[in-house]
C-alpha cells in the first residue's frame, strides 16, 4: 500500500469513527445552548472551544460529520443505484436508440452547473437535508452511467463474454454476472471521489443556508455562522474549515490510492 492510501484510510476512518461515536456519546449536548459560556477558546473544558451559542465545537463537529457522511453517502447511493443500471443497459444495447437516449439524457444533466441546480432544487422545494441529498444525488447519476458504459463497452468485445453469449445467457444476465464484477473496482474508486464531492456540496449548500436546518449540526453552517466571528474567535471558523478540508483530502487520497491498488495492471507490476 502506498503512503497516500494509508493517510487516506487513516483520515477517513477518523471521521467515520467520530460520526459513529456521536450516535452513542458526544462530550456535550449540542441542543442545549450555554450562552454565558460562548466563544471560549480551544483547550479548556471544551477541547475545541465553544461557538457563539456556547455549544461545544467538538460535539458539533462529531454531529456534523454524521450529517455530512449521511448526505454524501445517500447521494452517492442514488447515483450508483440509478447510474450503474443505466450504464449497463446502454452498453448492452450499444448503438441502439435506447443507448442514444440514455447517453444524451446524461449529457443534458451534465450540461447544467450542478451546484446551481442544487441551489434551485433546495430553493424551490425548501431547504432540508433530504432535498440536499436529492439535489446532490441527481448529479451523481450521469457520472456513474457514463463511467459504467465506458468500462462495459470494451468488455462486450472480449472472448469470455462471447463464450457466455454462446451459452445462451441473456444480455441482462451477462451484464450482472460478467460485466458488473469486472467494473466494481472502478465503481468503488469513483464512488469514493463522488463521496468527497458530495461532502463538499453538502457543506456548500449548508453554508448558504440550503442544507440541513438547525438544530441539526452541519459543517457548512458552522462556517457560515462563524463568518462575522473570524476576527474575534478564529477557532469557530478554523475548526469546521479544517474538518471539511481533512475529510475531503482523506477521501481523495483514499480514492487515488484505491485506484492504484485495485488496478490489475499496476498490481501485476507491483507484484
Amino acid at each position: 500500500m502506498s503512503r497516500n492510501l494509508i493517510i487516506g484510510i487513516a483520515l477517513t476512518v477518523v471521521f467515520l469513527a467520530l460520526a459513529a461515536v456521536s450516535f452513542l456519546w458526544t462530550p456535550y449536548d449540542i441542543e442545549a445552548l450555554d450562552i454565558p459560556n460562548k466563544l471560549q477558546g480551544p483547550g479548556g473544558a471544551n477541547l475545541l472551544g465553544t461557538d457563539h451559542f456556547g455549544r461545544d465545537i467538538l460535539s458539533m463537529i462529531m454531529m456534523g460529520a454524521r450529517t455530512s457522511i449521511a448526505v454524501a453517502l445517500v447521494a452517492v447511493g442514488i447515483g450508483m443505484a440509478i447510474g450503474i443500471p443505466l450504464g449497463l443497459l446502454a452498453a448492452a444495447r450499444r448503438g441502439s436508440l435506447l443507448d442514444e437516449l440514455i447517453m444524451r439524457g446524461n449529457d443534458l444533466v451534465f450540461a447544467f452547473p450542478s451546484l446551481v441546480i442544487a441551489i434551485l432544487i433546495t430553493a424551490v422545494f425548501g431547504a432540508s437535508a433530504v432535498n440536499a441529498i436529492i439535489a446532490i444525488g441527481i448529479f451523481n447519476i450521469p457520472v456513474f452511467a457514463r463511467l459504467t458504459r465506458g468500462a462495459a463497452l470494451p468488455l462486450w468485445e472480449r472472448d469470455f463474454i462471447l463464450a457466455a453469449r454462446v451459452c445462451g445467457k441473456s444480455a441482462a444476465r451477462i451484464s450482472v454476472e460478467h460485466i458488473l464484477p469486472n467494473i466494481t473496482n472502478l465503481m468503488i474508486v469513483q464512488g469514493t471521489i463522488q463521496f468527497s464531492l458530495g461532502i463538499l456540496a453538502e457543506a456548500a449548500l449548508s453554508y448558504i443556508g440550503l442544507g440541513a436546518q438547525p438544530p441539526t449540526a452541519s459543517w457548512g453552517r458552522m462556517l457560515a455562522d462563524a463568518q462575522t466571528l473570524v476576527s474575534i474567535a478564529p477557532h469557530t471558523a478554523l475548526v469546521p474549515g479544517f474538518a471539511i478540508l481533512l475529510m475531503v483530502l482523506g477521501l481523495n487520497l483514499l480514492g487515488d490510492g484505491l485506484r492504484d491498488w485495485l488496478d490489475p495492471r499496476i498490481r501485476v507490476a507491483r507484484v
Binding site: 441542543e31 442545549a32 445552548l33 436546518q213
Partner: peptide, 21 residues
C-alpha cells in the same frame, strides 16, 4: 440567531419547532 436560541428554549419545555429560514 434568536430563532435557534428560542427553539432550544422551547424544546426544553417540550415544544418542538421546525425552523424555516
Amino acid at each position: 440567531r434568536g430563532g435557534e436560541i428560542i427553539a432550544a428554549q422551547l424544546r426544553e419545555v417540550g415544544i418542538e419547532t421546525e425552523i424555516t429560514n
